[in-house]
């Protein structure tokens, strides 16, 4: 009991500097943003009323949701396949999967976004190849639109989606899968009726992590969207840095943070945090 208590005190002391840092560098300034949203240009709920009524803000929120949902679906499905190979593959396959998961972490988000531009643009590698192979006559619109944003963001977020999935797959008892086979289920059937349902917590965790990350994306959509597929974070940036509309930018930030907070609450409620890593 004493030991347990001292462990808890120890843990609290260990994370205290981090919490303090977050409070000073993040929570305190954010309170300032909250204040702006109610005071600029004049005190009241005016900016929140604009936020609800303005068709531009609404279309950005809708696009953000659309892109985030697409990115979440694509990332979780892709990550699921990678996680299966990472957890259940042969040693060589595992090593390869591990390499594919870790390497992206060493490359900056900017480099990766410009890399995608080089691949996807009208005179980029993919369009050039397809045209010279005679498969298409006009270049495909792969970038400077939502598709480009979705591709770039999925590429960035897949590795993050792998971890909760792999963790759920690792904790799965092999004998349960053998049992399904022994009872007459084929590999495919075992996968869909036993393996997938038993890793559901990993799927939920992975989807929420990707979704929350995706909501706040800035660099990737700015580069791959080419100013035409503006997402919420970019809209905040535009309101604050390129138009003197700090109040609306602040109000959008507050709504975004509340929404993310709600999702995080869901995440911790339905998926135990230790299952995430």
């Amino acid at each position: 009991m004493t030991r347990h208590l001292s462990n808890r005190t120890g843990a609290a002391l260990t994370i205290a500097p981090l919490l303090l840092f977050l409070a000073v560098a993040y929570a305190w300034p954010f309170l300032g943003v909250v204040k702006w949203s109610f005071t600029l240009p004049e005190p009241g709920f005016g900016q929140y009323r604009t936020l609800v009524a303005d068709p531009l803000v609404q279309s950005v929120f809708l696009r953000t949701m659309r892109i985030c949902i697409a990115v979440t679906l694509a990332s979780v499905i892709g990550a699921y396949a990678i996680a299966v190979v990472w957890v259940r593959g042969t040693p060589t396959q595992r090593m390869l999967a591990e390499f594919c998961i870790l390497v992206p972490f060493w490359i900056s988000v900017l480099t990766r976004a410009f890399g995608w531009v080089a691949l996807l643009s009208n005179r980029g590698l993919i369009n050039t190849w397809l045209q010279s192979a005679g498969i298409i006559s006009e270049p495909l619109a792969l970038v400077r639109n939502e598709l480009g944003v979705i591709i770039g963001m999925t590429h960035f977020l897949i590795p993050f989606a792998v971890f909760p999935l792999a963790s759920a797959m690792r904790s799965l008892d092999d004998r349960v899968l053998l049992a399904a086979r022994g009872l007459g289920a084929s590999r495919t059937r075992t996968f869909w009726t036993v393996f997938v349902p038993m890793t559901a917590s990993g799927i939920i965790g992975s989807a929420l992590i990707v979704f929350v990350f995706a909501l706040g994306f800035f660099v990737t959509p700015a580069i791959l969207g080419g100013g035409r597929s503006v997402m919420v974070a970019e809209l905040v940036y535009l309101r604050i840095f390129q138009s003197p509309d700090w109040g609306l930018g602040a109000a959008i930030s507050v709504v975004l943070v509340l929404f993310v907070g709600l999702l995080m609450a869901l995440l911790f409620r339905y998926v135990r945090p230790k299952q995430l890593v």
Binding site: D173, R175, V176, L178, A179, A180, V194, M198
Partner: peptide, 8 residues
């Protein structure tokens, strides 16, 4: 199975 391996 040892440990029964039921579908949880």
């Amino acid at each position: 199975f040892q440990g029964y391996a039921l579908f949880p």
